[in-house]
């Protein structure tokens, strides 16, 4: 190997000297660093403006008539309108995601990580799931409209004045929308379980399912929970698919009941749809009501998000420590 000759002509020497003399601080480096920090802080500033703006707008409603705002249905007058039906729809959508998406998603992840052999079928499923995660949400609405609304048209008989655009159709549509994200995050959590844990369980004679049930799932549980909570939050904030499925924008018949199973066969709306409807109303009187509805939705969605992030950070710290 040839010995590399340092090239120390005048120019290089002077530059090196200058840089040493400057104490290691270079202006362009500093500018670069602050520009990067600026990008980050600007994004956070926007978040701050958004939240501040929404809260100040909503204050007149939240401070004076929180009770009626939560309990009233949508009315023609802004200062009487409430979000009761929106909350009800969002609650039921959450139920569908928890009951359908969580078990199916986790089971699919178990298959992909623990059972699947590395063959064409597995690769197909993997590519398929990654692509499903990228399908625009409004396209899931088309699936809901074509399949669920059509299938459910006759199911609830004359209970529903609907044409199939029931809570069930909306709930199933969002449950399916949330599925790919649950599968992907649960797979990642299961993949992170060290093999030594599985081998130890096999070593004492456990079967595959016993290994998964008693070792893999408990270890992966925090990661799985984080992913499921994030996907639940995402589903509860979605509006576009519900519009396609036929969630009611505007007034919805003054039916009572919240938790009753008969809601499954009724027409429905949800918080994001209520917000859309309020936001589209002409006139400034609707702005505080819209903002108040947004605050309620943000509390729910960001609440789930925060719990998920805190859980993850906590367990990450524990594992590393």
């Amino acid at each position: 190997m040839a010995i590399v000759q340092p090239i120390l002509d005048d120019k290089t020497g002077k530059r090196v000297e200058a840089q040493i003399a400057s104490g290691g601080v270079s202006l362009s480096n500093l500018i670069f660093k602050w520009a990067l920090l600026g990008c980050l802080l600007f994004s956070l500033l926007v978040l701050g403006v958004l939240i501040y703006d929404v809260f100040t707008d909503s204050w007149s409603v939240l401070s004076s008539r929180l009770g009626t705002f939560l309990a009233n249905p949508t009315r023609t007058a802004a200062d009487e309108s409430g979000i009761f039906q929106g909350l009800r729809g969002t609650f039921w959508i959450g139920v569908f995601v928890i009951v359908f998406t969580f078990p199916v998603g986790i089971a699919a992840a178990i298959y992909l990580e623990e059972y699947a052999r590395d063959n064409a079928f597995t690769r197909l499923i993997n590519v398929n799931i990654r692509n499903l995660a990228g399908v625009p949400s409004v396209v899931y609405g088309i699936l809901g409209l074509t399949v669920f609304v059509t299938l459910l048209k006759g199911v609830y008989g004359d209970v529903a004045l609907s044409r199939g655009n029931t809570t069930t159709a909306g709930g199933l549509t969002l449950a399916i929308l949330a599925l790919p994200v649950v599968i992907i995050t649960a797979s990642e959590a299961i993949r992170a379980v060290p093999d030594s844990l599985r081998e130890a369980a096999y070593g004492v004679g456990a079967t595959k399912w016993e290994v998964i049930k008693s070792h893999v799932l408990p270890y992966a549980a925090p990661g799985i929970l984080t992913g499921t909570l994030l996907s639940l939050a995402r589903a509860l904030g979605e509006a576009a698919p519900l519009i396609l499925v036929g969630a009611v924008q505007g007034k919805l018949g003054p039916r009572t009941g919240f938790f009753g199973l008969d809601q499954l066969g009724e027409k429905f709306t949800a918080m994001p749809i209520v917000i859309t409807d309020f936001a589209k109303q002409p006139g400034d009187s609707w702005q505080p009501v819209t903002a108040a509805a947004i605050v309620v939705l943000l509390l729910v969605v960001l609440g789930f998000n925060a719990v998920a992030v805190i859980l993850r950070n906590r367990f990450e710290a524990k594992r590393e420590g």
Binding site: V46, L47, L50, R234, L236, A239, A279, L297, N305
Partner: peptide, 16 residues
Amino acid sequence: ILEVLAGIPSVVLGFF
């Protein structure tokens, strides 16, 4: 905090 921004529903940004 950046992840909070990711969690904001699109309808909220639409209103914004």
